[in-house]
Amino acid sequence: MVDAYLGAVYPGVLVATAVLFLAGAASLAFVRTHKALTWVVTGFYLVTVIEVVVIIGSLFSGAIPVVITVGYALAAVALLPLLGIARLGAPEAADGDPERPVLQPDQIARVDGAAAMIIGVAAAVVAWRLAEILAGAA
């Protein structure tokens, strides 16, 4: 499982984060590409699920430091809801809070784009840290 992560999953996650970053930049610059970003985000969810499953499998295959590995795996999952943060600003998401930011459709596309860029970088760092931990323990 460690070899699978280092050889296939880690490079795949890095590619996925790069695609997420570029799709976010495109959505920020060209609002019309927002639909494509939503597909990329769905794909990124799947990539993260595969990453976490392989990481959990790696825990059983040697002297992997459990606490920090599980911590980073949780961080990889915890980043995902932030990809949809613009939804909280959608007009129909009204919750009676007068201070809630309300976004127009073009603003939602731009916030989603900025979120995808930030999460892309953060997810790449998490994947890199996991690779360092697994490589160190292998």
């Binding site: 613009a86 900025a114 979120a115």
Partner: peptide, 16 residues
């Protein structure tokens, strides 16, 4: 609102 949510996002990632 874009700046506000971008700041919320950045602080959430840093908090995490």
């Amino acid at each position: 609102p874009i700046a506000r949510i971008a700041l919320i996002l950045a602080y959430s990632v840093l908090a995490l």
